[in-house]
Nucleic acid binder design. Sequence first.
DNA 1: TAGGGATTGTTTTTT
DNA 2: ACAATCCCTA
Length: 854
Amino acid sequence: MATGWEDPFDSRAPLMGQSGGIGARNHYSRLMSDPFEYDDDDAWPGAPSGPAPAYPGPGGNAAAARAAAGPPKWLETLNEAQREAVLAVDGPVLVLAGAGTGKTRVLTTRLAQILHEGRARPYQILCVTFTNKAAREMRERVAGLVGPATEGMWLGTFHALGTRILRRHAELVGLKSNFTILDTDDQIRLLKQILEAERIDEKRWPARMLIHVIQRWKDKGLTPGKVDASDAGEVANGRAVAIYAQYQERLRTLNACDFGDLLLHNLTLFTEHPDVLQQYRNLFQYILVDEYQDTNISQYLWLRLLAKTDDPKRPANICCVGDDDQSIYGWRGAEVGNILRFEKDFPGARVIRLERNYRSTPNILGAASGLIAKNEGRLGKTLWTDLPEDGQKVRVRGLWDGDEEARVVGEEVEALQLKGYPLDEIAVLVRAGFQTREFEERMITLGVPYRVVGGPRFYEREEVRDAIAYLRVIAQPADDLAFERIVNKPTRGVGKTTMQSVHQAARLERLPLSIAARRMVETDELKPAARRSLTAILDDFDRWRQLSQGVDHIELTETVLDESGYTAMWKESKKPEAAGKLENLKELLVAMEEYEDLAQFLEHVSLVMDADDRGKGPMVSLMTLHSAKGLEFGTVFLPGWEEGLFPHQRAMDENGLAGLEEERRLAYVGITRARERCEISFAANRRIHGSWQAALPSRFIDELPGKHVEIEADRGVYAGSGGGAAEDRYGFMYGGGSGFGGGGYGGGAYGGRNSGGLRPGVPERGRDQGFSQGGGPGFQRLKSRGLGSRAPVIEGQAEYIGGDKQADWGEGERCFHQKFGPGTVIKVAGDRLTIEFDKAGTKTVVAAFVERPE
DNA sequence: TAGGGATTGTTTTTT
DNA sequence: ACAATCCCTA
């Protein structure tokens, strides 16, 4: 260590045997018993009283000179609280950053400040985010402030950073450093095998559910030995812990990790090898954590291990940024408690509140604040803004059913579009993924470009995963899961029975599948046909492995996909999605170019590779409230605010008040995404799982403070269809007038199969029953009058949007639509095509969305 | 071994 | 309604 400041992990120096004397060991032994005790009261070493000693900067003269040149200009544009958060670099700091208060700005500026002052080298900074996207943005923004000085910074997701560390020390936890990272699919397949061997009825204890249980344990930092037996209860006939242990065992033999392991093994590594922990503690002089409210316990423990300094006089330089009001991931193990107990963990911690909102109008802010105030157990913040204009009130609209709701939103979007309002400033945020569908269809018929954010991720698609599986087997012959996945895909006569015998042999000889298979084909154990097929594919793999030494990973992939018959399989397929799959395979090759070699690509594909965001041009965004966190839009539509859907019934059933409060935070997140316009809506009738359900307006609507909200009767929509009752209906709804449709039905919980239809009952909350109707005949009548039929509306508007261009299509021509599949054009009107789809029925769509068939 | 008919469940999502 | 998965038969 020449300078003492090099990152030992970036030089290829051997890692073990450094530091970690006896004194240190005692110190750690105390620690070792503690990290897994989440509830203990053990406190962190306190911050020293008085000003923290300036940390001796390693940056040398250049940094000193920069520091002497006066405060950097970026400080000038910060408000007081922000500046405080940026400058408080010594000691533990918790930044409570409300929505739209410039959180990212503070984080990035703080990083820049640390680098600028020469307090630490980039590699001495650990900065953790939750998503790759956040990490990328952060890096870009910091680079924008201080330039290339960010190189080498440990900036990434918990998992990416955990992986980086784990690869360095894999042997210490029984892995090899080239371990594979499994995704959910692989996990389930593996678990199924274990369940089968254990003779556990998969019907009664589905692998999906058990993997969830195991995951939850991992989230808590619990290895099989640490799980409290009573915690497992009756799950899997009381054998859940044993299964967990076996699962871990199998992972180890496969030289694989699931996502949870990436951190869990880090915890094991750090507690069992204090000298290793010591190195990282020495290394990381500053730790920054984004979205702290979303950390789970294992992440918390990881941070806690790393943040603790060996010198009790020196405080941990850890800065966590978060917002308890935006904690919406409790269901996947996030522990709001982490943020609530920060001051206890780090006595003397400074807590800085960012409350000045730069995003939304006073009305939007007021509505959101009023709503979130109904939650208990908050750290408490009061967002404020000094915008002079209150802006438009938050509009709440009650509508007849989901179709109408989608139509109204569609119309508004269209109106905004005509006014020249940029489409990418518009978002429709829904509670659950399936809700995007009706809006999608609406946008298609209107010809409004849209994008669904957060659909299936690119690398999760079947064809991409298959292709990757081939590569994984090439890179790692021991990768059984990958081998199994593609050994008979395309079908090549290596079926279940063959694989069963291979499995058996593999288990007996404790060999990886592909090795066992190689041995078997050299004997007479298999039937000749199976033996021939299996030999062929094994030879293929041998050949490809050879090839991988000679050519780059792109060429290799091309060859493999071609020679394996995989591409041919999709080319011959008649499935409507086949063309898209081939497209994705090409896309994969393009994506691979970003990586240097196969190993690097494989590393990133499971951790980092994002969904293809090749959406071009301005588009309306459709997404769930969860995926909207962190984003902002000029106009936000929030449909589906109905009891049972939002708040979601299951959230309440499974988590009671805590579940409800998380739903409320979700609503808060939704509203605070909007800068100037926020429109909430709910429908009286909604079709869920095929059957119509009457629904009550969400309780959250009641909770919105009246002075920031306007409840709107959307006349016109029903004019002439409901015998004049429509307008009254809405007046009554919130004004307490007389009823429509007789009321009396309600209870809008969405039940299962058997609750189909409407059931009599009294709304739970004793509210006015106004808006719940009985569906039935009246509803049918409405539908048949054309409320549900789209054609008249569409054609009327086609002229506005489509102009006079005649689409280049002829009637009777065959065509293909990304969403609806193949079909036949039956009518051409301007750029609108009416198409009879083979599967999806007859629809009118914009020609631009339609392609020629292959 | 493969493909078709029955069965089943259907919140949110990152890594 | 719908899709994914499972089981069974050809």
